[in-house]
Design a protein around this nucleic acid. Sequence first.
DNA 1: TTGTATGCGTTATCAC
DNA 2: GTGATAACGCATACAA
Lengths: 337, 337
Amino acid sequence: MAPRNDARRGTTIYSVADTAGVSIATVSRVLQGSPLVSERTTRKVLDAVAELDYLPSGAARSLAVRHHDTYGLVLPELNGPYYAELLVGFETRAAELEKSVMLVLAGTKEDRDSALRTLATRVDGIAVFGSDAYVVSSGKPVVVIAGHARAGIEAIAAENVEGARLLTEHLLVDHGRTNLRFVGDIAAAADLLERYEGFTAAHRERGLTPPEPVRAEFRERDGTAVAELLLAGDLPADALVCGNDELALAVMARLTDGGVDVPEDIAIVGWDDVMTARYVRPGLTTVRQPVQELGALAADRLHDLVSGAAPSAERRVLASEVVIRSSCGCPPGHPAG
Amino acid sequence: MAPRNDARRGTTIYSVADTAGVSIATVSRVLQGSPLVSERTTRKVLDAVAELDYLPSGAARSLAVRHHDTYGLVLPELNGPYYAELLVGFETRAAELEKSVMLVLAGTKEDRDSALRTLATRVDGIAVFGSDAYVVSSGKPVVVIAGHARAGIEAIAAENVEGARLLTEHLLVDHGRTNLRFVGDIAAAADLLERYEGFTAAHRERGLTPPEPVRAEFRERDGTAVAELLLAGDLPADALVCGNDELALAVMARLTDGGVDVPEDIAIVGWDDVMTARYVRPGLTTVRQPVQELGALAADRLHDLVSGAAPSAERRVLASEVVIRSSCGCPPGHPAG
DNA sequence: TTGTATGCGTTATCAC
DNA sequence: GTGATAACGCATACAA
């Protein structure tokens, strides 16, 4: 028996069944595109749908089919192109898979937990950037991006240590720098730590003892703070491997303003290949990660997991690419310059 | 009678009711934080919840309460900081309102329609960037961002024409330029058209006939194409008002490489104040919009609409701010450089 | 080809 | 305080 449809409290499948003169089962069938409905009835139903401006209830459907056709994506923030690209890759692939995406940006610790809890309530699976205690224990399929794998949790990432090793090596051998420093907060993110590992590896391979990292957040002002140190002579170095481009750019700008020549006096390299990196002079040598592909991969893995696949034990890592410009000491003039 | 709970097909409110030895009504009450449950029962329920790792079904809840506690956001893309900031503002405000956000990036025309249709199915209201035929007719509350209002549809935007008028005036009177061109595809977006209107207004106020706009997309390569025209002498101009910063930056870079002096030979201004704008030399004069606030406002308006407020007939516009650097001809040295 | 009836997992209105 | 139980709006197995 149809629920009361007295009030104009939203058109339901019952209303269209009524005005089309068929049962709700039939309405449901034509809406699903079932082939076993007569053309005539199909038309009647479609007409009713159009007439009533019928909009199905996603909640009711999800409840009936027992899944949400929605994936969650949890990002720490959205500054700079990195996370945006990740999001694009994820959303695009999800759209291809005909899944909706719910986004949550990690705010305060407390808000975050609550937001994540309700997120888990509305999706089939979640992709998190970095490791997150709660999400991981939500029971739903999870893939962590650029974080560490755990039992039963898949992890994917872009290559970090090898790229950093190459970059460091480039500075050490190709440019003969002898006093490198890594700048970035290696405690803040797993991938930063890995970049530092590449940095140390390149040193150790040559019998050098790797210097301690110079702590700095990603913000621009942290970069200028580091530059001040350099300018004041409190931080001797002839090359800087920065945790990301924002940092590198900020340091470079302040240094240049302060009269030091990059890369003559000090070489600087970054990570991410943001737009500014190719507009600034000297062009910033950096590393380009396949960020969009990473996002797409996250959606793909989630899809497999949700479809019942067992989480793979080893994490997949996508290759990154060193982009040489001239802040490392190489001559300018490369095409991408 | 409780549905069969034989299989481990996900823990439901019935399972926790069972293991807690209470009714589902009671479970629901403690989960809602109802005050009229005894402390003892509360504890029992909470224990059961913890033991079973119970995760409620958002779909079931939405169906019961007849709303989704979710807002949809439809963006054309996510290149550059503009949309990202809009998204941040929207998500942040939505989170404060305890709403989830579903994001859809407009892909192909066809995919888009389908995606929007199902989006409407899962949310209480939708914020769209620009005008979108389908969303507007979805029946759900809609607010359009940076587009035109229609009957029953709220619109919000950042100030465009006045900013453009000011910028143009600055070039015309403060720097005595006489041959300005507006570059950008004014047919592509409502706000670009408005910027062009400001451009023409400044001309007309002085009895000048405003030149036709130079068509160009937002992509960088379109900017370099325009620069080639200039370089070849096919486009006489001593000042360019570009539709956005990416365009301005690309033009400026190609021009500089081609040996023309900015701003001596030609002044260039942009729009958006992207990060590169302050790192590049000369610093790019541009306009900063309150993008994040715009996103937050969208969420706010949506919230009011969903709460039953009548859509306001006039659109709200947030003030933008001209950022003077030196690509317009002003001397460098301002704090923001 | 179409209709009937039931389940999906909550919330909320009654009773007790 | 707590427990039945009726919606909520759809999908679908089973009948017809």
